[in-house]
Design a protein around this nucleic acid. Structure first.
Lengths: 223, 223
DNA sequence: ATTACTAAGAGGCGAGTAG
DNA sequence: TCTACTCGCCTCTTAGTAA
């Protein structure tokens, strides 16, 4: 973030609130200072500085001052807002994943019968033997994970190799074409954090959603 | 806004970005200072202050420090985010209006034939002779208005009184039951800003939406 | 390597006041 | 009244450095 943004944030916010981002607001350094719990002098000086920096337009008159935000001033607030929205994703906001190619190994893995019986019991569906890999903004993803209860699927030993435990998070998967219940699966050994989510559902998601690489899929919470 | 919030905002943001709001992040005052374009000393001191204020949890070790945000720290960011969202409503975000009783005069007004012919021509529909009044958050409303082109309906003189010009803004109106194209109508003489929006549509909105006072209606942009 | 103390210097703050 | 200047005070910053 810009150093300026935090130094002048409270004044920018005060103007934006009064003036609704685009209006010109008539006020005075005295009134503004009172609102900001600062002195008239500091407020006056800061406004001059902000004008110099191109954050506001400012005119003085007998009765006080009129101020409006410049595009740059609005931009600082918008930028900060977007940054905060990205950091603080609320539970109800679905997050977007971009389809990427996996190693093709996921299908063999989740296709194992001893996984499938647990999927049926714990998640309510048998999984199509194939996973869809979604690249996700890691910040949003972590936030999303934080709020979900994980369902643990036990690992087991196969004939040739070991199949580790899986953490599952039931989700709604949706794109333009379709919408289906599914689950994130996170092998317990995986080194987190990882920006790829592997998802399963009862259907073949690639054909259900008619997707190619780089398409977008929404991942939403289960009610 | 809290004075603390702006003083420590850049550090809070840096931690939240790295640590995804809930994780504990391992870093060092040196690295953090570099990222924040400040000195190691100031960063160290501020972190100590922030711990004292209950904004973060902090542990030092041989290799540096581990930090996580407290609920209070998260709260400061969330509060700021909500404030910014309220100020900066993007064009695509529908705003919510609450149905309130009008004076019942709106219907007589918009029912005038010389208005109706213009509605038909300029808006694409004849209006049901009645308006719905919606109370709206004024900040969001102003922002919404700012981005819309207004359609001007000319005023005229009737037998007994004068009917002034109207500014119209086509919108989508929606609630749980239904969705319909309509228009905000703003008598030109009205003293703005006003937190009540008067809306019309070809249908009787009260019956189409099956609404009573205090129900909510979404007002969205026309594509 | 680190963190964080001390101390000096930079710079922000507000009282007084001119215009 | 108002804005905004000067100037002293005091807080915040950073260099040096100990642990």
């Amino acid at each position: 973030m810009d150093k300026q943004t935090s130094r002048y944030l409270d004044i920018l916010l005060a103007i934006a609130k009064d003036g609704s981002l685009f209006d010109t607001v008539s006020t005075s350094t005295v009134a503004l200072a009172k609102q900001l719990k600062s002195s008239q002098q500091s407020t006056s000086r800061k406004l001059v500085e902000m004008e110099l920096l191109g954050l506001i337009r400012r005119r003085t008159n007998q009765r006080g001052i009129t101020i409006s935000l410049t595009d740059r001033g609005v931009g600082q607030l918008t930028y900060l807002r977007d940054e905060l929205i990205q950091i603080i994703t609320s539970e109800k906001t679905p997050i977007l994943g971009m389809v990427v190619s996996g190693l093709g190994e996921g299908g063999y893995y989740v296709g194992q019968e001893r996984y499938q019986t647990q999927f049926k019991k714990m998640l309510g569906f048998s999984a199509f033997p194939g996973t869809l890999n979604l690249r996700i903004d890691i910040t949003q993803f972590k936030h999303f994970l934080h709020q979900k209860k994980q369902i643990v699927i036990k690992g087991f030993k196969g004939e040739h190799r070991t199949f580790g435990p899986l953490n599952c998070i039931p989700v709604m998967l949706r794109n333009k074409k379709n919408s289906v219940e599914g689950s994130l699966i996170i092998p317990e050994r995986t080194t987190h954090p990882e920006d790829i989510a592997e998802v399963i559902a009862k259907d073949n998601l690639r054909s259900l959603f008619d997707i190619k690489d780089n398409d977008k899929v929404e991942i939403g919470a289960i009610e």
